[in-house]
Amino acid sequence: MNTAGPTEWFFDFISPFAYLQLEQFDRLPATLDIVPRPMVLGALLNHWGQKGPAEIGPKRVFTYRYALYRAQTLGITLRIPPAHPFNPIKALRLAIAMGSSLDVIRRIFRHIWHDGHEVGSPEGFAALCEAMGCRDGLADVEAQQVKDLLRANTDRAISLGVFGAPTFVLDGELFWGEDATGMLLHCLREPGWLASDEVRRVSTLPVGIQRA
């Protein structure tokens, strides 16, 4: 595994697991060149024909419980906003308008998932802009170049095979989910693991049966 190039991190503010993963970035090597990519998870789900976890009743309850469990296990403050799922589009555009730095992204995530604020309503988004110190945020998120970059990030995610959030993409390999952080670290320490015989075997298993 060649780690000379950047490591893309695809995320959506709608995901509590993206927040939990970001809060663990201090576990990653300082030499890792992380390029954040705000994207629209809903567009990915539509592309792959998937339902989101919150669209399946029992899975929705489990997802919130598991997110809370992970947060408590990791010692990370998590306060789920008052309604979920919510519309994350403007928050994603705001991150792009403000430069998509990890600092900006972290502050937005913490506003939502640490402090428990909603950002889907006009009032909630205006409060986010105020908290971020972005006086022109309401106008900035309507700029065509901002919209185009969010779409380009989402299209790139699809082209790379990304199917969920959060996802690291390193050398074309996908590491999906907060709980795959350890797998990414393992592959950085053991660069030959993905090329090992058993990993190669399970990566090319034939499909035994398909649903009609």
Rank of each mutant, 00 (worst) to 15 (best):
N2R: 09
A4S: 09
G5A: 12
E8C: 04
W9V: 10
F11S: 14
F13W: 10
I14S: 15
F17A: 07
F17T: 11
A18W: 09
Y19H: 14
L20P: 09
Q21I: 07
L22Y: 04
E23F: 01
D26F: 10
P29L: 01
T31A: 08
L32I: 02
L32D: 04
L32Y: 05
L32E: 05
D33A: 14
D33N: 14
I34A: 11
M39K: 05
M39P: 06
M39Q: 05
G42E: 02
A43L: 05
L45Q: 10
N46Q: 00
G49L: 12
Q50E: 11
K51P: 10
K51M: 11
G52K: 07
P53S: 07
P53Y: 01
P53V: 07
E55L: 09
R60C: 03
T63W: 10
T63K: 04
L68M: 00
L68N: 05
R70W: 11
A71N: 03
Q72K: 14
Q72C: 12
G75S: 03
T77F: 04
L78R: 06
A83W: 02
H84P: 04
P88C: 12
K90P: 11
R93K: 00
A97I: 02
A97L: 02
G99C: 07
G99E: 12
S101R: 15
S101Q: 10
S101Y: 07
I105A: 12
I108D: 08
F109P: 15
R110Y: 12
R110P: 10
H111G: 07
I112E: 13
D115Q: 08
G116Y: 02
G116M: 01
H117N: 14
G124S: 14
F125W: 12
A126Q: 08
E130C: 03
A131I: 07
G133V: 11
C134G: 11
G137H: 05
G137K: 00
A139M: 06
A143V: 00
V146E: 03
V146D: 01
K147Y: 00
K147M: 00
A152L: 02
A152G: 06
N153Q: 12
G161Q: 04
V162A: 09
P166T: 07
T167G: 13
D171P: 08
D171N: 15
G172L: 08
E173L: 02
L174W: 09
W176F: 13
G177M: 07
D179T: 04
D179L: 04
A180G: 06
A180C: 08
A180T: 15
A180M: 12
A180Q: 08
A180F: 13
T181V: 01
T181C: 03
T181K: 08
L188C: 01
L188M: 03
L188N: 04
E190D: 07
G192T: 10
G192N: 05
W193N: 02
W193R: 03
L194I: 09
A195Y: 14
A195T: 15
V199R: 05
V199K: 04
R201I: 07
V202F: 05
S203I: 01
T204D: 10
L205R: 15
P206V: 14
P206E: 03
P206S: 11
V207I: 13
V207S: 03
G208I: 12
Q210A: 11
R211P: 13
R211A: 15
